[in-house]
Design a binder for these strands. Structure first.
Lengths: 99, 99
DNA sequence: TTGACAAGCCTCGTTTAACAAGGTATAGTG
DNA sequence: CACTATACCTTGTTAAACGAGGCTTGTCAA
């Protein structure tokens, strides 16, 4: 989930609530990320320096936008590679390549 | 992980320790399943009726073999489909298909 | 104007998967 | 005999995700 959030932020700055709907729509509603998951996650990413936050008024609403940092970009690369390794391994097992 | 174990058992009966090494070799050492994970998992699968167990002496050792049940086969199908849905959704997000 | 609903952010407590770190027993080998 | 590999097990811990709430502000209809 870290990877997916960081990936969204690599494209553009976003606010939390937006990420929920964006992930849902891009995944054809497969990801129904709960706010109880997202906000603690964002706070952790901010604390570790992977993202930075700023408030901005847009469309008559004050929102808390998040931006990807350099460190977050590196983490994104690592996590993406880990995902490819992991999903590749799952498929290797499923496809029955013995050995 | 349930899915992977059930998948192995769909091919042939296996004992716990064998699953650890089998998963490791098939995944090029990506999966290093710990016994502290595997055995409770197997007990749970047995309890819910997805696998059945029997002891057999082979190669001078008494081993606890597991066999996939009909119910386990159904669970395997469900989990495999869930995995395909999930990994497909991840890749949909990563590939940036907006909307 | 007021009430309801959506947008937007948050926290707390629970569940669960996986792990770490142990323990036990047996077979084979130097 | 000691040591290693095989084989099974348990207990306690950690971390991700969720459920179920709470709080505020803007919009829109009655």
């Amino acid at each position: 989930m870290d990877m997916l959030i960081l990936h969204l932020l690599a494209e553009r700055d976003m606010y939390g609530y937006e990420m929920v709907t964006e992930l849902a729509s891009r995944s054809s509603e497969v990801f129904q990320l709960k706010e109880g998951t997202l906000y603690p996650l964002l706070h952790r990413l901010e604390k570790e320096g992977s993202v930075s936050a700023y408030e901005e008024k847009k469309e008559g609403r004050v929102r808390r936008y998040y931006r990807l940092t350099r460190k977050g970009g590196e983490k994104l690369r690592e996590r993406t590679e880990a995902w490819e390794t992991y999903s590749g391994a799952v498929n290797a097992v499923l496809c029955g390549t013995p050995g």
